[in-house]
């Protein structure tokens, strides 16, 4: 309970992950640009089952809350938060490995 939030954990450090893995290797990308909270997390919940366990699903979001809420969702639902890529246009891609 004392561990701090870790929104930008580097790829290759999480359990079940291949070190040095290509961070763009996502099985499914969900375009949630323009959606506000909690819509991106709802999309993620609806589609995480579309990838196989161990595969990565990514959420691309412009809403500021997604950067916090996607890692929080992973913690609450038992999935592994892989990391975030800033896409440079106000959007962030948040990568999640299905448990």
């Amino acid at each position: 309970m004392t561990r701090g939030p870790d929104p930008d954990e580097a790829p290759g450090q999480g359990p079940g992950q291949v070190p040095g893995e290509d961070p763009t290797a996502v099985a499914l990308e969900l375009d949630c640009r323009g959606m506000v909270c909690p819509a991106p997390v709802i999309e993620l919940a609806r589609h995480v089952g579309d990838v196989a366990p161990g595969e990565v699903v990514a959420v691309v979001a412009t809403d500021a809350a997604a950067r916090v809420d996607v890692p929080a969702w992973c913690r609450m639902r038992g999935h592994h938060y892989v990391g975030a890529d800033d896409l440079g246009d106000g959007a962030v891609r948040l990568r999640v490995r299905r448990a």
């Binding site: 701090g4 939030p5 870790d6 929104p7 909270c37 909690p38 997390v41 809350a65 916090v68 809420d69 890692p71 929080a72 969702w73 913690r75 609450m76």
Partner: peptide, 10 residues
């Protein structure tokens, strides 16, 4: 909430 890593929606 963001600083705590807590869910901010709902």
């Amino acid at each position: 909430l963001a600083a705590m890593g807590a869910l901010t929606h709902g």
